[in-house]
Simulated scan of single mutants.
Amino acid sequence: MSTEQPNNPLHGVKLADILEFLVDKYGWGILGSKINIRCFNHDPSIKSSLKFLRRTPWAREKVERLYLNSI
């Protein structure tokens, strides 16, 4: 399976793991200031954020980009 996408650093990484990493690293407050979306700024939770990110490609792209820049 790893030969299918050898140059994709996100291959095999779950969105939940990405979000948990970012919350642990930055916290909700800083994460909300870096990526200004409502689910990070108003009553944030992993569950509600995952639901939003799975349905919103532009927001998911911003989260993935921040993750790649953070590792």
Rank of each mutant, 00 (worst) to 15 (best):
E4I: 10
G12L: 12
H11I: 05
K47S: 13
E20T: 12
R54A: 09
T3V: 10
W28D: 02
Y67S: 05
R55P: 04
L66A: 01
R38A: 15
R60K: 14
E20R: 14
R54T: 11
P6A: 07
N7V: 05
P44R: 01
E61P: 01
I37D: 06
L53C: 00
K51S: 14
I46H: 02
R60Y: 02
R55Q: 15
Q5S: 11
E20V: 09
S33Y: 08
M1C: 12
D24A: 13
I71R: 15
V63Y: 02
P6I: 06
R60P: 04
F21Q: 03
G29D: 13
L53T: 01
I46A: 03
I35Q: 04
T56L: 08
N36K: 15
I46D: 00
K14A: 12
I71G: 10
G27A: 07
P9W: 06
F21I: 03
H11P: 03
I30R: 15
L22G: 00
V63R: 00
E20N: 09
N36S: 15
N69S: 14
H42V: 15
W28F: 02
N7E: 13
S70W: 02
E64D: 05
P6Y: 06
D17M: 09
F40W: 06
N36V: 15
Y26E: 06
D17E: 12
F21A: 09
P57I: 05
M1P: 07
D43V: 14
I37P: 01
S49T: 15
H42N: 10
Y67A: 03
H42P: 01
S48L: 11
V23Q: 05
E61N: 05
P44L: 01
L66E: 00
L66R: 00
I46G: 01
Q5R: 11
N41D: 07
R38Q: 15
L15S: 06
L15G: 05
T3E: 14
I37N: 10
P6H: 09
P6Q: 09
K62C: 08
L66C: 00
S49H: 04
I30C: 14
W58I: 09
A59D: 06
I35T: 02
G27V: 07
C39K: 15
S2P: 04
E64N: 08
A59T: 05
F21H: 14
G12M: 13
E4D: 11
V63K: 01
W28E: 02
G12H: 10
E4V: 12
Q5H: 13
G27C: 05
R60C: 12
H11E: 13
S70Q: 11
Y26L: 10
P44H: 00
P6N: 07
L50K: 04
E20H: 06
V63T: 01
S33Q: 09
Y26S: 08
L68W: 08
H11A: 14
G27K: 11
L50I: 04
N41C: 07
P44N: 01
F40L: 13
G27I: 05
I46C: 04
N69Q: 14
P57N: 11
N41G: 03
E64L: 05
Q5W: 07
L22W: 03
T3I: 15
N36W: 11
S49A: 15
V13P: 12
L22M: 01
